[in-house]
Write a protein that binds this DNA or RNA. Structure first.
Length: 215
DNA sequence: CAAGAGATCATCT
DNA sequence: GATGATCTCTTGA
């Protein structure tokens, strides 16, 4: 089931947790790439000092004031994109950052998009005790910049809708249920500048899942 | 293995 | 002019 605006027009922390186990679907021509969301972060509003919109409504952040179910894509460090979905009421700037996926469909297509070195040249940390092929799979979309590259997500998708019928990028419920006991809460990554908000446990991931980002 | 630097640019001061 | 919701590669122990 294609998630609609009612799903996203809710408390951001709830949406962030409920997105675990949902499937991100990217249509490229006839291809439908997809992966299960295994890690998210909540950016809960203008008072959240880690939230880009805490600095007000600017050209970059105006998309966060759009209705729930709008994509917010921005470039970070000059090289990577980050994918967020806008939540809560229109004009309340908040969003969920999608940080990692467990690839499920058209994995070869994602590997091409990532432009990776052959797995034969891959160095697997010895304590992981994994084959290079398995390691190549795990590191395909285990971070916000990597998953955007794997699914060819860039600024062209910024401010587009995830809930319209013809969306090229949207989220599906395929009936996977993640119990509360399997959701780990931790500090958000890379927000040391956010004062009293930097230590809030607004990052969520599926306990024990191999595809969660390495921190 | 850990730690550090470099890539590279949109955004805000 | 500085910095960042990141990732990868190099260095050195």
């Amino acid at each position: 089931m294609h998630l609609n605006s009612h799903f996203f027009k809710r408390n951001t922390v709830l949406v962030a947790q409920d997105l675990l186990g949902k499937f991100l679907v990217r249509k490229i021509g006839k291809n439908k790439l997809s992966g299960m969301i295994v890690e998210t972060e909540a950016y809960v509003g203008p008072h959240d000092l880690a939230c880009h919109a805490s600095k007000g409504k600017t050209d970059r952040t105006k998309v966060m004031f759009e209705p729930a179910g709008t994509w917010y894509v921005y470039m970070i460090y000059g090289m990577y994109y980050c994918l967020n979905i806008v939540t809560e009421a229109k004009n309340y700037p908040s969003a969920v950052l999608i940080r990692a996926l467990e690839p499920t469909n058209l994995i070869e297509f994602m590997v091409k998009n990532r432009n990776l070195v052959p797995s034969s040249q891959l160095s697997v940390p010895s304590r992981k005790k994994l084959s290079t092929d398995h390691w190549a799979l795990i590191t395909l979309s285990d971070g916000p910049g990597k998953l955007c590259r794997a699914l060819r997500i860039d600024k062209k998708l910024n401010c587009t809708s995830a809930v319209s019928k013809d969306a090229k990028l949207y989220i599906e419920d395929r009936g996977v249920k993640i119990s509360k006991a399997k959701i780990v809460k931790s500090k958000r990554i890379g927000v040391a500048y956010a004062g009293s908000w930097k230590d809030r446990k607004l990052r969520f991931y599926i306990k024990g899942n191999q595809f969660v980002s390495q921190v």
